[in-house]
């Protein structure tokens, strides 16, 4: 479970990148975090993962405060950043072993083989990540994130660069993860994916959370039987 309690963050005086955000993502659901460019999505995710300090409020992951119990809180999630160009000097297998050591993964061989075969990068593991294509880099980062089987998945634009097969596999894994009573929090610009996959969505714009709920609740609120894309545009344009 992920909880945001009155979270705010400012980069400059008077301008809040995230303004009094309160939100709970329950176990067993896939939560889509949507918003236009510069809305505050990445800032929110960075605060959630401990990259950014919180100015006001509190963020809890499975009851652990990200600022007061950082190590314990960080063990509860796996994070895929929006930039897959990470650890380029390492070989794929070295990166996965490193992540396995960080998270103290047991059965690492089985986990690595299972994930790398699932995402079809098993043959590339002995090569350096810098030689991978964009999509392969995204896949190796996803493998590294999921290896320790974290309860909370935090994914920032995870489908970018993935081929259709891998994108389908990831969506299936996300669904299965949530169905097992765990939590998936992900941001995306692809509203079709969010519409089909998410149990609930949150729409943020200019630092403020404009809507939280299911797609049906959104339709009921705006009294329109429109697609998520149309409702999203209406919500963010009217703000």
């Amino acid at each position: 479970m992920i909880e945001f309690k009155n979270v705010s963050k400012s980069y400059r005086k008077g301008i809040k990148a995230v303004d009094d955000l309160s939100l709970t993502i329950n176990d067993g659901e896939i939560f889509g975090f949507l918003g236009p460019n510069g809305a505050g999505k990445s800032t929110t995710i960075r605060m959630l993962t401990g990259i950014l300090n919180i100015d006001e409020g509190q963020i809890l992951l499975d009851g652990k405060d990200i600022e007061k119990e950082p190590i314990e809180a960080k063990k509860t999630f796996g994070y895929v950043a929006d930039d897959p160009d990470q650890f380029l000097a390492l070989k794929g297998i070295e990166y996965l072993n490193f992540m396995a050591d960080v998270y103290n993964v047991e059965n690492r061989k089985e986990k690595i083989q299972q994930l790398s075969e699932k995402f079809e990068i098993a043959d590339a593991l002995s090569s350096r990540i810098e030689s991978y294509s964009h999509g392969m880099r995204q896949k190796i980062v996803i493998c590294g994130c999921l290896m320790h089987d974290p309860k909370n998945w935090i994914l920032d634009e995870p489908m970018t660069g993935l081929d259709p097969r891998s994108s389908f596999d990831l969506k299936e894994m996300m669904r299965k993860h949530a169905d097992e009573g765990k939590c998936v929090f992900f941001s995306t610009h692809v509203l079709d994916v969010a519409e089909k996959l998410c149990d609930r969505v949150g729409i943020i714009n200019k630092g403020k959370l404009l809507f939280t709920g299911t797609l049906q609740e959104m339709r009921d609120t705006f009294e329109e039987n429109a697609s998520l894309e149309e409702l999203f545009l209406e919500i963010t344009e009217n703000d």
């Binding site: 070989k91 072993n97 490193f98 050591d101 960080v102 103290n104 990540i129």
Partner: peptide, 26 residues
């Protein structure tokens, strides 16, 4: 082609060497 290798992985490829050693090697 920097960094491309077709070496096969073996048992040693999956061994844990401890967090600190792993980090320093990185």
């Amino acid at each position: 082609s920097s960094g491309i290798s077709d070496k096969k992985l073996n048992e040693k490829s999956y061994q844990s060497k401890g967090l600190m050693f792993s980090y320093v090697m990185k």
